[in-house]
Nucleic acid binder design. Structure first.
Lengths: 343, 343
DNA sequence: TTCATAACTTTACGCGCGTAAAGAATTAAA
DNA sequence: TTTAATTCTTTACGCGCGTAAAGTTATGAA
């Protein structure tokens, strides 16, 4: 890149001594040209500053190298982290990730998909909002664009689903809590927007019954994605009323637990496993902030890496094999117990 | 949208009875055609499902309607929030935001700018990493694409800078802390990557001297963007050594404070303003999680909304007036004291 | 050396749209 | 009603690249 700017592929062809069709092949897939030719082109690229015009390229390709990544809420570090991991895997394979957040709004989720449609993505990785999502429109989108769902499942929609094995992970922490103290009651939202929440509730009930305990649910009012706020509000109420059936609370997710811990702290309750503690609190997800709560939060970590890697791999496989799938696979990954100070 | 799919503008012209050049004008700027014509087109758009091919459109335009938004770290809720606010303002004005995070890596920051270059953005809003950034390459980029910096300034680079008035906001909280208890010492990173950190340090020193106190700095070792971890580590050390010059700590940002609070909690120190408290801790930024720390964190909130709105407005103004600016303006917004329980 | 094959060059067309130019139709003002 | 200004239609070209077809050159095995 000695600075000489090249305006188009024609011009680059003349300065590099390679014909334009060959250059076109090269830019689409460097390995599709002879090694000696590739080296000549790469040498020329060192000298001249040229890259194909993205818009001209994509206009003539039926499907682009873009891959949409849509998550419910980008300001949630959990989704920011998993989205980032997915992005890395996509880039490695030579595709271009396009990251979009829906900010908890079903309308924006659909708007994001519409926006993606206009950039003709090769495929989309979608973590849907869940119950609030416009299922019909998402299904229509999946009919047009190869889409793999992750994190939250919608039955039958998309090429595949990749997520956490809530039955296993909740079972894991229920076992742990029962083994080390009083059986937990389950702290969740009354009308959660995420399908995982329902799975976790069922998994909690099943685990409790398996161990011969009777399940108990504490359900917080509130809508939307301000989970900490909801956890704090309901936590304050629970602590004030002091009519808990047990001293152990298992939260449906870490963000609720963060709010709950804050409420317990304000009320002067000691949370933890030691002597003199009033309450045990556990979460689920291993949220990035759960290491810094007071006390640090015992939780179950999802296998981010595996979920990100697998969902990207399945999508790319579907894209490159071009086969319309008949078998919609569901891949679930086990959680891992993260023991900290809160339970 | 009765479902009849239209393949291109030509086809839409024939079914709508409007000539293609007029349609082209309409899609570029609906107000550029007569009202009656616009209504006929809009009526046709209701019936037929058509939208111009994004790639064909942008190929022929010198500059697109894309606006890049680059932040240092998308997994930081602070940046996620301000980026979101900026996105909203951009969408309102009919442009398309393209959100990119640099994940703390200067190389990725440059890669993001290179990626943006290839989509020919009309302009870019950039919150640079700061000291670690490749200033030369950023400057070169700003020479090609109208760029407004926000959050972190790099002297002389870009069309403008929009950020917080650190002198004011730090002064504000130093005043408050001195008024209500012991003068604070300043808790920060020894080699911070963000230019705001230096401004805040200077502002702290200036405020202390103005009030006749001698400033004291506590500088945490550590690199990168894991501020909570760094705050926790250094916090643990500080608490263990117990050689603080004062019982009040002002943290350079909330994420350091979150780590510090966690360390204080683990060490059994009582943080807060009441009787029997060992320590007061304050932060800066009003991080989304600072409402849920234990105790809740007293801090200074940045004026997200104004920073987002103003930086977007200045950029759009520059884009639409097409004038190469000679006067690089810097706009700073005052912070607001958020009094909570920690100080 | 011979020859089949792979890889290349040359030529040419098309993608969907921006946009310029010239003439026709509409609108608003006189 | 006449006239001038807008706004439209028609026609045509170009953007930068994908890609097909036919001919040419390079490659490597026999």
């Amino acid at each position: 890149m000695t600075g000489t700017k090249i305006r188009n592929m024609e011009e680059f062809a003349s300065v590099s001594g390679i014909s334009r069709p060959t250059l076109s092949k090269f830019f689409n897939d460097p390995s599709s040209v002879r090694t000696s030719t590739r080296q000549r082109i790469e040498a020329a690229l060192e000298q001249y500053d040229y890259q194909p015009n993205l818009y001209a390229v994509n206009q003539n390709r039926r499907l682009t190298k873009n891959i949409g990544v849509v998550v419910p809420y980008l300001a949630d570090p959990f989704f920011a982290k998993i989205a980032r991991t997915i992005e890395e895997h996509i880039i490695e394979t030579g595709y271009r990730p396009v990251l979009l957040g829906s900010h908890g709004s079903p309308a924006m989720e659909i708007a994001n998909l519409d926006n993606l449609r206009s950039i003709k993505p090769a495929g989309v990785l979608l973590a849907p909002l869940g119950r609030a999502s416009d299922h019909a429109k998402i299904e229509a989108f999946c009919g047009e664009v190869p889409t793999v769902l992750f994190d939250a499942n919608i039955d039958g929609i998309g090429e595949a689903f990749v997520g956490s094995n809530n039955a296993q992970s909740i079972g894991l922490i229920v076992d742990y809590l029962c083994r080390t103290g009083e059986p937990p009651c389950f702290f969740e939202m009354k009308s959660p927007s995420n399908p995982n929440a329902f799975k976790r509730r069922s998994a909690y009930i099943a685990a409790m019954e398996r161990l011969g305990h009777s399940p108990a649910l504490i359900q917080a009012e509130g809508q939307g994605w301000e989970f900490e706020e909801i956890g704090f509000r309901e936590g304050t109420r629970v602590v004030r009323d002091r009519n808990l059936p047990t001293n152990t609370l298992l939260c449906s997710n870490d963000r609720l637990a963060i709010g709950l811990l804050s409420a317990a702290f304000e009320a002067g309750l000691r949370v933890g496993i030691g002597e003199g503690c009033d309450l045990r609190v556990a979460g689920h997800d291993d949220h990035p902030f759960s290491r810094y709560t007071c006390p640090t939060l015992t939780t179950v970590s999802q296998d981010y890496e595996a979920i990100a890697k697998t969902s990207a791999a399945i999508l790319l496989d579907r894209i490159e094999s071009e086969e319309t799938n008949d078998s919609r696979q569901e891949r679930l990954f086990d959680g891992r117990l993260i023991m900290r100070a809160s339970a």
